[in-house]
Simulated scan of single mutants.
Amino acid sequence: MSDDLAARLRKQGLRLTPQRQLILRAVEELGHATPDEVLAHVRSQVSSVNASTVYRTLEVLEELGLVRHTHLSDRAPTYHSTREHEHVHAVCRRCHAVRSYDPAVVAPLVAALGEDGFTVDVGHLAIFGLCADCASEDPRAPGETEASSARLRG
């Protein structure tokens, strides 16, 4: 990937720095990571990298098409490598596990929205709910009480 990174950076008039390489490698190794998680990973190797370098580099890497971001929580965006296949994110509201699904899973939704003239950015799509493990423990949504569950049932 460093050859691809170097070529894309040169095309933009930028140079390949060790920090940029470390940050891209961190995103690839972590899978889905917030800027703070990327920073912690990079700092485990090089303590001198600061947060602003990570944020700026993630922006550059996204502009170059090497990483993408999505919002998997109400926190900072989560970044992942574009080397992975395009995927939809399913996020458990209870345990915060993230699973990736092939875009074909949401193809009917994408097609229906497309008929209305809306183009879906599938890689940015995050669907929230409960994973199978959490749903089997207690099927109520996080924060839902027995009383509110009973009200919903009628």
Results as ranks from 00 to 15, higher is better:
57 T>P: 04
57 T>W: 00
57 T>I: 03
57 T>A: 05
57 T>R: 00
57 T>L: 01
57 T>K: 04
58 L>V: 02
58 L>N: 04
58 L>T: 00
58 L>Y: 00
59 E>C: 03
59 E>F: 08
59 E>T: 13
59 E>L: 09
60 V>W: 06
60 V>N: 08
60 V>C: 05
60 V>R: 13
60 V>T: 15
61 L>H: 05
61 L>P: 09
61 L>Y: 06
61 L>Q: 07
62 E>W: 00
62 E>N: 01
62 E>Y: 01
62 E>I: 00
63 E>W: 02
63 E>A: 11
63 E>P: 00
63 E>H: 07
63 E>F: 02
64 L>H: 03
64 L>W: 05
64 L>M: 05
65 G>R: 00
65 G>P: 03
65 G>T: 02
65 G>S: 03
65 G>M: 01
66 L>N: 05
66 L>R: 03
66 L>F: 04
66 L>W: 05
67 V>K: 01
67 V>A: 01
67 V>E: 01
67 V>F: 01
68 R>L: 10
68 R>V: 05
68 R>P: 01
69 H>Q: 13
69 H>Y: 12
69 H>W: 10
70 T>L: 11
71 H>K: 10
71 H>Y: 15
71 H>V: 05
71 H>W: 13
72 L>C: 11
72 L>T: 10
73 S>Q: 02
73 S>T: 07
73 S>Y: 00
73 S>F: 00
74 D>H: 09
74 D>L: 07
75 R>N: 12
75 R>Y: 04
75 R>M: 04
75 R>F: 02
75 R>H: 06
75 R>P: 00
76 A>P: 04
76 A>L: 12
76 A>S: 15
76 A>I: 00
77 P>I: 07
77 P>M: 07
77 P>L: 05
78 T>G: 06
78 T>A: 15
78 T>M: 09
78 T>V: 14
78 T>L: 04
79 Y>A: 05
79 Y>S: 08
79 Y>Q: 09
79 Y>I: 07
79 Y>R: 12
80 H>Y: 15
80 H>R: 14
81 S>L: 02
81 S>W: 01
81 S>Y: 01
81 S>G: 06
82 T>V: 14
82 T>E: 12
82 T>Y: 08
83 R>S: 15
83 R>T: 14
83 R>F: 10
84 E>R: 13
84 E>W: 10
84 E>A: 11
84 E>C: 10
84 E>I: 06
84 E>G: 10
84 E>T: 09
85 H>Y: 12
85 H>A: 15
85 H>V: 12
85 H>W: 10
85 H>M: 13
85 H>K: 13
86 E>T: 14
86 E>G: 12
86 E>M: 11
86 E>I: 13
86 E>F: 08
87 H>C: 06
87 H>Q: 13
87 H>S: 15
87 H>K: 12
88 V>S: 07
88 V>M: 07
88 V>C: 07
88 V>G: 06
88 V>I: 14
89 H>I: 03
89 H>R: 10
89 H>T: 06
90 A>I: 11
90 A>Q: 15
90 A>R: 14
90 A>C: 11
90 A>G: 14
